[in-house]
C-alpha cells in the first residue's frame, strides 16, 4: 500500500518534470531520460512508457529531424493540451507542497 502510494507519487512528479522540460524546449528521448535519471535517480527506461502514455493523451507530439552527426532524432514537443496539463499539474503540486510545508514546516 505505502509502496504503491510512493510509486504513484513518483509517477506524478515524473510527469510534471517531463512536461516542464518539454515546455522549456523540444527534446529527444535521451535528453529527457538522462536529465531526469541524473536528477531523480530513476531507471531511464521508465520515461518511455510515460512518454507513450502522454502521446496517447495528446499531451506530447513527435517529429523527426536529421542530426548533423549520427542517426535521425525523434523530438518530443508539448501540445497545447500538454501546456494545459502542465499548468494544472503545477497547481496541484504547489497545493500539495504548501500542504506539506504547513505540516512539516519550511526548512529555509
Amino acid at each position: 500500500m505505502a509502496d504503491s502510494t510512493h510509486i504513484q507519487l513518483k509517477k506524478g512528479i515524473l510527469e510534471l518534470c517531463v512536461l516542464t522540460l518539454l515546455a522549456e524546449k523540444d527534446s529527444y528521448g535521451y535528453q529527457i531520460t538522462s536529465r531526469l535519471s541524473d536528477a531523480i535517480g530513476m531507471a531511464e527506461g521508465t520515461v518511455y512508457p510515460l512518454l507513450r502514455k502522454m502521446q496517447k493523451e495528446e499531451l506530447v507530439d513527435t517529429y523527426l529531424t536529421d542530426s548533423a552527426s549520427g542517426p535521425p532524432r525523434r523530438y518530443f514537443k508539448l501540445t497545447r493540451a500538454g501546456h494545459r496539463a502542465l499548468a494544472a499539474k503545477r497547481a496541484e503540486w504547489k497545493a500539495f507542497k504548501a500542504a506539506l510545508v504547513d505540516i512539516l514546516g519550511d526548512d529555509e
Partner: peptide
Amino acid sequence: DYRFHFAEAE
C-alpha cells in the same frame, strides 16, 4: 522508442 534511445545515447 528504445531503438531511438540506443542510437541517441550512443
